[in-house]
Every structure is written in structure tokens, then in C-alpha cells.
Design a binder for these strands. Structure first.
Lengths: 354, 354
DNA sequence: ATGAAAGCGCTAACAC
DNA sequence: GTGTTAGCGCTTTCAT
């Protein structure tokens, strides 16, 4: 049976001896239409016999609803996080029998506009505009022409609904892991890039300290590029200081990986001599490190899900107001956090973990 | 301007004072239809004025060609490799003005069948069936009903066109890096899973040895789970042997990461005391390790591209024979390979690294 | 060089 | 309860 040669509603109508209207009524279970049990059975049977599947294209043309959702992103699909975001979006789409049409702009605004057009031409019901890391964006103009939601991004104005991770809360929770374990000198290896995460994660770090009554010490923070290299450098700088921190909070897992390398370089054992908490929960990294890295997870799946659910709502209620969601970032505990080492705390006397 | 309220071909026809037929001819540049320069201009102008964009749904209904390609996979989108595969597919699709419709089955065959149906209902022009690691699959029945290509997978019979990485060649090239650097005792930390990569990468390893006239030594190979943990264990086993290898070839980058950890544990410096080559080129890992990991890249982008290109060809030539492609796996040189350490080669007398 | 008419497969008023 | 008719927006013979 060829893609093209499928049974149509007419075939089903003929085989069951009724009109196409009736077939449509039966198969779509249109409410308010009373159909005799007999016909219902005959139609259903005929449809089954013929392996009839409605042509969604024709359906969409008629109903002005395609069950297609555009998923437009800059680099998202090549990013390790992307998958979970897309999966969340997909699952949410599936709840409404919708499918995702994927498109990558590579970050080029012109390409972006063209791609929005391509999506619109296909009569998608709405568009999710995704960024591959939390940032502020100016979405393509075309987005205004239909329902749209920003994923892992905030628009400059609040025009579109959007969903982003609760960086502050996540960061605070991460640092609190360290504080709760007894650490008071906690170095912060921050990302130097000018993105929301930088300031937000710093804010969370400060909040956590405040909760524990620990004064913020500027000399405990460094900013580097968000790579293993940057993390290594930053950690080295912090750990080579006069009064070495007993723990490090790293703005990304890759940086945390660099911090591990620095610890190794300095013959510091984790978590005995040094505790480390990361951010991102890049499984590939966090779970592969020895010991496993305690980190803060970015809720990509949930964000993807939220975006599509919100989009579907907007499609059904076109005049609704934009909503902005903040999804929590849960801490993922592994083995990189322990009590502070006496030696470096310089207090002496307390029992020391093996 | 609302999604729904877009200008139609009729609006353009009215505005330019011609029939919709003519508009269609002009806009689609139908060959053989001579249109006066005047009308052409008028139509083009009207279309531009109205921001006319054809409704692809209607077009597709009429032409039996939607410009939609189904991309169905098991777990692919949540996998770090997925992105490049999807991107390659997308780029190839773009060449034919087609879009990708993404679907994940989660590995459930029943879900898979349903999803193929969903794709078929949408009248996709063809389907790419992708696996998230190279393996042998029995594709869903529904796939037979239209053009389809297997990506990173081989069908049990050769029914569908398919594309997979040249594991043997890649593996050989990787090991040759080590041989060329002078290594002769090369440990192989293989993946224990029963998948094509296991035997194929072993075959490549043996081929490389053969080229250099080095006999295969069974005691130099271990098989472990393909994680950092497994790599650590495997490397430990090999490096603790009586005659320690001077280099390690690891079946995956994650395992290589474990091998780095083992080296650290044994105070072996890479590449001075031990050279390591991985497989996969998981950037996140390979590029973050210190020193950078020399590894063999899996050609995900190219495979994705090949799959869609092949699919498009099949769509245009429905009766063509299935083709099977093997895409080369290039070596990515970083800093984990050096000449063998004299000390561990067991020649004696040489100075020994700290 | 241009247009009328049919029809892709489906749904939705409105009849009966 | 079921059918007739029109039409979603487009392309494509076939006329003229």
C-alpha cells in the first residue's frame, strides 16, 4: 500500500453504503448527531477494513487547525540540553494530538524570519521560539502573526508568554547544600558571559549566604568563561588564595569539571578537602565525574512542556494575556559535597572525615 | 494580522485583475506558460502588497507533496549526539524546501507504529527512522507504506536504505594514531554491550595492529559497560597488569574519561606516561578533559544529511533500489597521544616520570 | 496570453 | 438519523 494510494472517506462511505457526512460524523464522534447503532458499526467496520486514516491535510484545510506546532530555535537542537526541552514539548504536544515541526535558525535573524514564514505557510497552530540557554531575546516579527511562546527566553517587552528557569532559587538551593554541610567559605566560580544566568546565579549565591548570616566576600568570587578551562582557572585562582575556600560553587557543570581538575592539580580530594557544587546537571559530565557532582538541574523537560501547554491554551483562547513562568531548578545530590575540611578551615580540633 | 486572516490567491487575483490560474502560473513560474511582462509585474506586485504566502496545506492537498519529512526516533532527541543528526537532516531537508516533523517513540514498538501512522496521516513525503546509537533494527510495519530511510541503523533485511558510521575504519584510524606514535602495547577498553560497535571497533583495532605487524594479545582487551565507571574499571584492570600497556584505546569517550580517572589514580600523566584515544567525539567530554582527548568522531551530521538526501531521491524515484551507506569516522586530534613512555615499556635504565 | 472549471479529502450548515 | 451542498486554498487540464 503506497503512501498516496490510501483509502479516502469516500471509499469508506461507499463500502458502508452511507454518505461521507455520516462517515465523518461517526468517525469524529460528533456530539449531538444521533447515528443508529447499525450504521455506526457498519462505518467503523468499513473504516477498519480499508485501514482508513483521515488525511490531516484536508482536515486541516477545512478546520483551520493542523495539529502542527512549530518549534523554532537558534542552536537548540545541537545542544546537549535540547533533547529534554524538545521531549517535554513533544510530550505536551502529544497530549493534544499535535506534532512538532522543528527548525533551527543558527542564530541568524534573517533566517529566523524566513523560517517563521515557512512555519506560517504550513499553517502551524502556533510557534515555540526556543533559545539554547536562558536569555533575553527580540523574537522575529513574524511571530506576532499567531500564537507564540518563548522557551528558555524572555522577550524584551512582555509581549509573548515565556518560560525560564528559576536561576536564583536554584542557585540558592545549590549553595545551601554547601552551607548546610557546614561550609562558610564558599568560593563562587561564576560565568563571565553577559547573560541573565550570571547575575541571577550570583543573586542566589548571595541570598543563600544571607540566610546563613554569612557576609558576602568579594574575594571569593571569580568570573571566567564557562568551560572546563575557565573553571580550572577560576578554581585555581580561588584555591591558591591565602585563605582557601572549603567549597566551590560553580556556575556550570563544565566549569565544575575544571574545578575538579584544579583540585587534582593541587592534590585536593573531593569532597574530603574540597566540596563542589555545579549547575546545569549535564548528565554526561556530572554523572561521569569522580566523585559524582552534586549540581543544580535546569528544568528543560518541564520548560518545554510548559511552553507547549501554554501555547495550546493560547490557541484555544486567542485573546488571553501573556503569562510568564519560572520553573524551579532542583538540586541533584551526588557525592561532591561533604563537611568542610578542618585543615583548611584552620580551626583544628574537630573530628575529621576519613 | 492573524494567522488565519492571511491573503489568499484569490485576493491576489482580484487585486491584480487576473484569474487565480494566472496568479498561480506567475508565482510558481510554471514553465511553458507565457505570461505578458505586464501581468507578471502586476501579479508579483499585488502578491507583495498583500504579503501573500501560499497555503502549503492546500498546495499539498492538491499536489500530493507536503514538503514534510517525518523524523522518527527511539531516544534520539535526548541524546547528546542527536542534535547533529537532526541538524544534518534539517539542512538536507532545507535544500528541498522541506521541513522535519519530529517524533520520539521512547523505544516502544507499539508507540512507534502509532507514530508512523500519525506521520502518514499528515501526508509526510517520507520518513527517516533514526536510532540513537548504531544498531540493527526491525522497523515498524507502517514504514513500508512510503519512502523511508534508516539512520544510524541497519534493517535486519536490506529492505530500507540505510546509513551507518564506518566503525571499523574509524577504529582502525584511531588505533593507528597510537601505533604511529610508536606504541605497540595498546590496551583496548571495549564496550561490553552486545551492539555492532563492539565487534566492529574490535575489528578495526585488530586491523590496525595487523597493518603494523603487531600480534593481537587477548590479555590487552577488557570489556566493560560504556560509562566512566566502566572505563575506569577497565583501565585499572589493564594498567595493573604485569606488563602495563603504554596506550589505551577506549570504545567510547565516556570510558576514556574513566581511563583518565584511572590514570590519575595511578599517578600516570597523560600523554607522558599513558596515551589515550577515545571514540565518539562527545565534545562535552573530549574537549573538557585535560589534556584534550584525541578521539574518533561519529559522523552524525553527515549521516543525518545523507539520510534525508537519500530519502528525497527515493521520493522522486519511488522504484529505486535501497542503498546502504557507510560514512567515514574522522580522527579528531587533541593532546592525549604522545610517544610511549620508555619506563613502562619495560626496557629499564631510563629515567622514570614522577 | 489568459481563464473556467474541476477536484485534492475533508467538515459543517442546513435540509429532509 | 442521514444526505446535499458548499467550500477550505490551491493547481491543473483544457478552452479560447
Amino acid at each position: 500500500m503506497e503512501l498516496r494510494g490510501r483509502a479516502t472517506i469516500r471509499d469508506v462511505a461507499e463500502r458502508s453504503g452511507v454518505s461521507t457526512t455520516t462517515v465523518s460524523h461517526v468517525l469524529n464522534e460528533v456530539p449531538g448527531k444521533r447515528i443508529s447503532e447499525q450504521t455506526r458499526v457498519r462505518v467503523t467496520q468499513a473504516a477498519a477494513d480499508l485501514h482508513y486514516r483521515p488525511n490531516k491535510l484536508a482536515q486541516g484545510l477545512r478546520t483551520q487547525r493542523t495539529g502542527l506546532i512549530g518549534f523554532l530555535s537558534d542552536h537548540v537542537s545541537t545542544t546537549p540540553f535540547a533533547g529534554r526541552m524538545i521531549l517535554g514539548a513533544q510530550d505536551a504536544a502529544a497530549e493534544a494530538a499535535s506534532l512538532l515541526v522543528l527548525l533551527n535558525s543558527g542564530g541568524d535573524p534573517e533566517v529566523e524570519e524566513r523560517e517563521v514564514e515557512a512555519l506560517l505557510e504550513r499553517q502551524v497552530d502556533g510557534i515555540v521560539y526556543a533559545a539554547f540557554y536562558h536569555r533575553v531575546v527580540t523574537p522575529p516579527q513574524g511571530l506576532r502573526r499567531g500564537p507564540a511562546v518563548l522557551l528558555d527566553a524572555r522577550g524584551v517587552d512582555g509581549e509573548f508568554s515565556s518560560v525560564i528557569p528559576d536561576e536564583v532559587g536554584g542557585s540558592r538551593a545549590g549553595v545551601e547544600q554547601l552551607l548546610a554541610a557546614g561550609h562558610r567559605r564558599i568560593g563562587f566560580v561564576n560565568n563571565q558571559d553577559d547573560i541573565p544566568a550570571r547575575t541571577l546565579r550570583l543573586a542566589g549565591y548571595r541570598q543563600a549566604l544571607e540566610v546563613y548570616g554569612v557576609p558576602f566576600d568579594h574575594s571569593l568570587m571569580v568570573e571566567r568563561e564557562p568551560s572546563a578551562r575557565g573553571g580550572f582557572d577560576g578554581a585555581m585562582a580561588l584555591l591558591s588564595g591565602i585563605e582557601m575556600p572549603t567549597a566551590l560553587f560553580c556556575a556550570t557543570d563544565r566549569m565544575a569539571m575544571g574545578a575538579y581538575q584544579a583540585a587534582q592539580e593541587l592534590s585536593l580530594s573531593i569532597p574530603r578537602d574540597l566540596s563542589i557544587v555545579g549547575f546545569d546537571d549535564q548528565e554526561l559530565v556530572a554523572d561521569s565525574l569522580r566523585p559524582g557532582l552534586t549540581t543544580v538541574a535546569l528544568p528543560h523537560y518541564q520548560m518545554g512542556q510548559w511552553a507547549v501547554r501554554q501555547l495550546l491554551e493560547q490557541i484555544d483562547a486567542p485573546e488571553s494575556q501573556p503569562t510568564h513562568a519560572l520553573i524551579p531548578c532542583p538540586v541533584v545530590r551526588r557525592e561532591s559535597v561533604g563537611p568542610p575540611s578542618r585543615a583548611v578551615r584552620g580551626l583544628g580540633g574537630e573530628p575529621q572525615p576519613a
